[in-house]
Write a protein that binds this DNA or RNA. Structure first.
Length: 916
RNA sequence: GCCCGGAUGGCGAAACCGGUAUACGCGGCGGACUUAAAAUCCGCUGUCCCGUUUGGGGCGUGCAGGUUCGAGUCCUGCUCCGGGCACCA
């Protein structure tokens, strides 16, 4: 009767599947619970991180089910994206084939976890039945003017002839080829995310971690201030946004972004050549170069002037790349006396500096003596109507000087109060193939129209050639189409950002086969909204912000109208249910590989313009620093570049695109995708990880052990490096549970006290595990179960507890462990004689009376230091406690050292005697 | 630079409202079983000092202060680590 984990786990996994144990069906007579875990990207295989994220989510879903909820816990795949296209280029496999093969592998692996996923509800975002509705949502966005087309500065790769997403650009270079990326103006599709900026700043009614809320708030970056209009000599208006309108009287020049529309008309002939050159330079500059030069301000004078509306002063207009076209209005008023960047710029180019704040408690600022700008509090001076008004560190109208200035500006019609956001509208256009098509056609007159709903989805053509960029634009059959009037038209060849697919997937889970709407209102009315969402904190801003935006936009477009109607039919109050997608959010940390030194490379080659053209690359853990031209740890691999950390900094090593760097830690062939996967898992700056394959661990120890250990070994929110050895403890625990479960318990001489002691422990454990499950504190829940295991092993050996107490203990242990280790508990549950699944049992309830200790250890302190301990009845009174404390032998010794000044009694735990 | 989060044994980590610091586990040490090893079982395991049989005491939660009868927990000022944002007007 050994514990045969493989046999047990496989048998139960099929049994659960056969009986449909995890099908979730709408049942209005029961309370619902929608538990969601972030859907995986089908990168190839499931790694430890997936297990770490998903098994606690699964345990929580199981717990809620045992608590009596009708739980929905679905799964799917976020299947569009760049890695599939890279695979296509590198290995000549169609992205669809690569993706679906990976999905097949991952389905098997996901099943091996023993999670209660309802596979009937699986959704795959690259399936036309799915992206039909992604396109449908785009159309609704377009119809409601949430989707629009506009010029924008984008990351353009001249090598690939395509726009790259920000996340594909690393240090100003294309992540994959290592070639430079430039900034370019292009017409792109956007979603008007900023329309919802204010609503997105509010987290009312949702329970999300504070750090995530802070990150989103900072990302949205609301700033309060004013818009002020300056007039050029030619009569054009230059609108600027400022958070410090009160310093307008100190504005001594203006700076426009090099790309600003008014630069041409402002530039005088004398300065035109310099301006043109600067603009070219700025456009060619990669982000990396800009960062390097961020110390020194650059810029050129346009020769033009504008009028400061508050004092009619003519001030020079410059252009400089520290002013960004994408933030505010792309133009600033420069107040060098009270803004450090402006100060540096003014000093560098010898421009006028005019102080307008008299600092509190200091002498008046004298321009030539200033070594930096003054940004502290004080009193306004040289500022006409607001002279003498106090200025503080407060922002917006809370600052008296700003409030006074805004009032004055509005009265004079020279400006108005304004709010600006750091967040930009969501750029969703991607010049990629493997994404959801944008269902639009361009008419010959330049206007656009959406594809008719009946013609959705616009299907991705399959017979295409890959050369590293999207083939759609080159594919005549795809591009050539007609508009609704039958006139020739050109099909949109951009596809959508994959974040769009993941912005609504939890709706598709509700009814993945629904073909007349994105989701079935009957299902939605019951299951929505998501009650708990679990996943990685790395999605703090992008995915989680887009998802919130999406739901708010859907609500305003009436997408939930039918759902609301069904809810009302069932007397469910819909108010507030469609404002936010996820009511509770919890993040797990990252599990990394075991500690080890990184992959130590020895590279010989030839130096060329700061990079090493490799002639030989080998892995040698013991390589000495002079063994090759470059020796160091492999940090990153792109198609033709290796980043090697030498200890003195990163060195770029150029290799052939098909170069194979054999790394012993990675089994099998070693292509770019695999190597990046390997490097990603060891992502940590100091300690390097190692790939830990969960499949191997499952074979060796069983899914129950792996699940238990992942929940036990770390603080879930924090994660940490995987320790190969630690799993032994969890394995022993699971085997002990087996031992307890199959033990033929036969008490020799039962003893009421022993029985009660066991029962007490059992009920204390229920209370502890229950509280921990609610709070996602898996490690202490498992620890409590291990303690119960220890108590039960002792009881089994002693044979003093009654049969009833033993049975209660065993059944409780199995039920409490069932969410964490679903297979072994199911097996033992049946072995002790039950026919129905343990996963359908009710969660045990703690009886506080049984759990209560009647004798407790009371600590006796003298001057705050523990001097003695005493076993006392839990019901002891303060007087009795005090008396007992003073009476012990040890304490009497301490009492002789002085006079008792005070006694603090906190019965039954503590008495503190102050002696002095 | 700005904004978050963190720091507890050799290691992963516990500690409700301020009330026994180190639960649970790993590792280590000693012992039992064994021809032996593995597995398993039992005991010990913060640190220093005195007694060294049984015990007693000092010091200990990144650092320096403070509040309190009492601080890992609260307050002030730092240091280091992790994450996010970054010429944001």
């Amino acid at each position: 009767m050994d514990y045969q984990h493989q046999e047990i786990e496989q048998r139960w996994q099929s049994a659960w599947e056969d009986t449909g144990l995890y099908r979730s069906v709408v049942d209005w007579s029961r309370p619902k619970y929608y538990a969601l875990t972030m859907l995986p990207y089908p990168s190839g295989d499931l790694h430890m991180g997936h297990w770490y994220a998903m098994t606690p989510s699964d345990a929580r879903a199981r717990y809620m089910r045992m608590k009596g909820y009708n739980v929905l816990f679905p799964i799917g795949f976020d299947a569009f994206g760049l890695p599939a296209e890279n695979a296509a280029v590198q290995r000549n496999i169609h992205p669809a084939k690569w993706t679906y093969e990976n999905i097949d592998t991952m389905r098997v692996q996901l099943r091996s976890m023993g999670a209660m996923f309802d596979w009937e509800r699986e959704a795959v975002s690259c399936d036309p039945a799915y992206y039909r509705w992604t396109e449908w949502f785009f159309k609704r966005m377009f119809e409601h003017e949430v989707a629009y087309r506009s010029e924008a500065m984008v990351n353009w790769s001249p090598t690939l002839q395509t726009v790259l997403a920000n996340e594909q650009v690393i240090d100003g270079k294309d992540e994959r080829t290592g070639q430079p990326v430039v900034q370019k103006m292009m017409e792109q599709w956007f979603f008007a995310l900023t329309d919802y900026a204010d609503e997105l700043l509010s987290f009312d009614g949702v329970d999300w971690p504070e750090p995530i809320k802070t990150m989103q708030t900072n990302w949205i970056g609301r700033s309060e201030g004013a818009e002020v209009t300056f007039i050029t000599e030619a009569g054009d208006e230059i609108v600027v946004f400022t958070t410090r309108p009160d310093t307008l009287w100190g504005a001594t020049f203006m700076v426009l972004a090099p790309e600003h529309a008014l630069v041409d008309s402002l530039t005088t002939d004398e300065h035109r050549a310099a301006v043109e050159e600067y603009r070219l330079q700025a456009a060619a500059q990669s982000e990396l170069e800009r960062m390097e030069e961020s110390r020194e301000k650059t810029g050129v004078f346009t020769g033009g002037f504008a009028t400061n509306p508050v004092n009619q002063e003519q001030i020079p207009v410059w252009i400089a790349d520290y002013v960004l076209l994408s933030y505010g209005t792309g133009a600033i008023m420069a107040v060098p006396a009270h803004d450090q960047r402006d100060f540096e710029f003014a000093r560098h180019f010898g421009l006028k500096i005019q102080p307008v704040i008299h600092p509190t408690g200091e002498d008046e600022l004298v321009e030539p003596d200033m070594t930096e700008s003054y940004v502290g509090p004080g009193v306004m001076v040289n500022s006409g109507p607001i002279d003498g008004v106090a200025t503080t560190d407060a922002k917006g109208r809370a600052n008296p000087s700003i409030a006074a200035t805004i009032d004055w500006l509005e009265e004079q019609r020279a400006g108005k109060e304004a709010i600006n956001y750091r967040v930009r509208d969501w750029l969703i256009s991607r010049q990629r193939y493997w994404g959801s098509p944008i269902p639009m056609v361009h008419r010959t007159d330049g206007s656009v129209e959406p594809v008719a709903d009946a013609d959705l989805p616009v299907v991705l053509p399959e017979d295409v050639e890959f050369e590293g960029r999207s083939p759609l634009a080159e594919l005549k059959e795809f591009v050539t189409t007609t508009d609704s009037q039958g006139r020739p038209a050109r099909r949109e060849t951009d596809t959508m950002d994959t974040f769009m697919c993941s912005s609504w997937y939890w709706f598709r889970y509700l009814s993945p086969k629904c073909d007349d709407a994105p989701f079935d209102p009957e299902e939605a009315a019951y299951w929505l909204p998501v009650d708990v969402y679990t996943g990685g904190a790395e999605h703090a801003v992008m995915h989680l912000l887009y998802a919130r935006f999406f739901v708010k936009a859907m609500r305003d477009m009436g997408v939930f109208d039918d759902t609301v109607r069904v809810m009302q039919e069932h007397r469910r109050d819909p108010s507030g249910l469609f404002d936010e997608p996820f009511m509770v959010l919890r993040n797990q940390g990252q599990v990394l590989g075991a500690e080890r030194t990184g992959d130590r490379l020895v590279v010989n080659g030839e130096w060329d313009q700061g990079r090493l053209l490799a002639s030989a690359v080998r892995v040698d853990p013991d390589a000495a620093p002079d063994a090759g031209d470059v020796v160091g740890e492999l940090w990153r691999r792109t198609e033709n570049l290796l980043q090697v950390e030498t200890g003195q900094g990163l060195v770029a090593v150029e290799v052939a695109v098909d170069a194979v760097v054999e790394i012993p830690a990675i089994p099998g062939s070693n292509d770019v995708t695999q190597l990046n996967h390997h490097l990603e898992i060891q992502r940590m700056s100091k300690s390097k990880g190692n790939v830990v394959n969960p499949d191997e661990l499952v074979v060796e120890h069983g899914a129950d052990t792996v699940r238990t250990h992942l929940m036990f070994a770390f603080e879930w929110q924090k994660g940490g490096p995987w320790d190969e050895r630690g799993i032994a403890g969890s394995r022993r625990f699971i085997e002990d549970v087996w031992k307890l479960g199959v033990a033929d318990y036969a008490p020799e001489a039962t003893n009421d006290e022993a029985s009660l002691a066991l029962r007490r422990k059992v009920h204390q454990t229920i209370a502890k595990v229950d509280a921990d499950m609610v709070d996602f504190k898996w490690n202490t829940a498992v620890a409590a179960l291990m303690t119960l295991r220890n108590t039960m092993l002792d009881a089994l050996r002693a044979g003093r507890v009654s049969d009833a107490a033993w049975t209660e203990a065993l059944e409780t242990l199995l039920k409490l462990l069932a969410p964490i280790a679903p297979h072994i508990t199911e097996e033992l549950w049946h072995r002790i004689g039950y026919a129905e699944s343990i996963h359908l049992q009710a969660w045990p309830e703690a009886d506080p009376e049984i759990a209560a200790e009647d004798v407790v250890t009371m600590v006796i302190q003298v001057n705050g230091k523990v001097r003695d301990r005493l076993e006392v009845p839990a019901s002891i009174s303060a007087e009795e406690a005090e008396e007992a404390a003073m009476a012990t032998e040890k304490i009497r010794v301490w009492l002789e050292k002085g006079e008792v000044r005070k006694v603090i009694a906190r019965p039954p735990k503590l008495v503190n005697i102050v002696v002095g």
